[in-house]
Design a protein around this nucleic acid. Structure first.
Lengths: 248, 248
DNA sequence: AGAGCTTTTTGAACGCGTTCAATATTTAGA
DNA sequence: TCTAAATATTGAACGCGTTCAAAAAGCTCT
């Protein structure tokens, strides 16, 4: 449970009252976000609602973005819990992908005006914050590993990462989607599942599979350098070593 | 000469002096951007430097983003002119892609701190502004149609659009690339050209080609709906018919 | 020349996110 | 218990992008 791994990047509450204040601040902020939207839930409004001064909000949260990140983590957790049961029913890969995206839209739709802000957080901090990434990766791991039939062995290891990277692209589309009720990105999510299903099957052909590897390595070099992130804070429920790891 | 196609979305200079002021404002802004960077080149600084009041800058430019868009257009134009000659030398598709990306990096590197702002403009306004899109599409048209040997007929028509969409993804990586000297996104651009080259060749196989079509339609439904945009405002200096137009 | 119109220009304000020196409060050691 | 350091909290400011009512300057017609 230790949140003491960081070299105090910002003030952590060191006393009981401090933790209480920080918690209340966070709770209030999330409520204000949900009720008033991104613009109206200003730092001033949040601080006022939490009964602290404006400047004190910055004692525990370095910026408004930090709080937005907390919201994003909460939403992704909610998404995971929402679709976790459905993923256990032994569906197709295609179905599982659809389930995951559906849950995403269901959880996020109330927060669409946070889109640009979410995206900025994602793009500018991939590296340092790993809690969010772990939640997301766990979700896509589940999507793949609980699918029946299992995807071809050749790509089973890399598919979750691919889906994760893909989901971020989709998310960036959703974030700035100005069509009514995000119709366009909903359609995109709906049509992407069968393509991946088809693609996964075709990956049995060496030609297609080598393309997949090319594409994945490209996407990877684009994502913010997740090089040797073997041991980050805490161990999550997914392992990454199943394939090689014995070469040494 | 009609600049009256829009329902006056913002004040256009109606007198000679007005045009002069707007021009000076824009010139000054672009200079300030180049010299001082995004943050330091504030609207106040620009207005001061141009010798007008702060609020007057908003008479001709609705927001700072509007001016950033002008900068982006100028840079893309510069990029096109920079690599246009090289594209005429009958190189491989792979080489042409590399030339285009190299020019992009060369023109943009001084403006890397505009990345997030550029990206926001691109994502939030794809639809309304078409001048930028036209410049970019012309570039990728050239990349494809001047390549020797020509890419397979089956994909020759859609390849420019694909490359354009791809280039925007790359751009979004570059925009938030915090590695020293944007090393990471440079590497990405370098490694993407051969993959596309390989991919274009493999598109002769029906299997791969149908995947390409799937992917393209997915990317398209993600981009902000550019449906039938046949005739937009004014005719720019590029033609669109050179390649087929006689196939019917 | 002057009245009535449009176009251009301004000054003053608003609310925002963020910073910082200073103050109040709690905690720990003698 | 008194003191001194550590922690928590505040008020006032800064600069930013943006807005708006009002003033200044041009133009047109009689």
């Amino acid at each position: 449970m230790g949140t003491l791994s960081q070299p105090t990047p910002l003030n952590q509450p060191r006393t009981g009252k401090g933790q209480q204040t920080k918690a209340k601040l966070l709770r209030t902020a999330l409520d204000a976000f949900a009720e008033d939207g991104y613009q109206a839930a200003s730092m001033r409004a949040i601080a006022l609602r939490a009964g602290v001064s404006l400047s004190h909000a910055y004692y525990y949260f370095g910026s408004k973005e930090d709080i937005v990140l907390e919201l994003l983590i909460a939403l992704r957790t909610e998404q995971f819990e929402l679709c976790s049961a459905q993923l256990d029913e032994g569906n197709t890969l295609e179905t599982n992908i659809r389930i995951a995206f559906d849950a995403s839209v269901q959880v996020m739709e109330k927060y669409h005006d946070f889109g640009p802000s979410f995206l900025k957080v994602l793009l500018s901090r991939d590296l340092e914050n790993s809690e969010l990434t772990q939640i997301e990766m766990t979700l896509w791991e589940s999507v793949v590993v609980r699918a029946r039939p299992l995807p071809p062995l050749a790509i089973r290891r890399d598919l979750p990462r691919f889906l994760w990277l893909l989901s971020r692209q989709i998310f960036s589309t959703w974030a700035y989607d100005s069509s009514p009720n995000q119709r366009r990105s909903r359609a995109l999510m709906r049509s992407i599942a069968p393509v991946i299903g088809k693609f996964a099957i075709l990956c049995r052909l060496p030609v297609v599979r080598s393309l997949f590897e090319d594409v994945l390595s490209l996407m990877d070099s684009g994502a913010s350098s997740i090089q040797d992130r073997t041991t980050s804070t805490g161990e999550s429920a997914y392992e990454h070593r199943s394939s090689k790891a014995k070469a040494s």
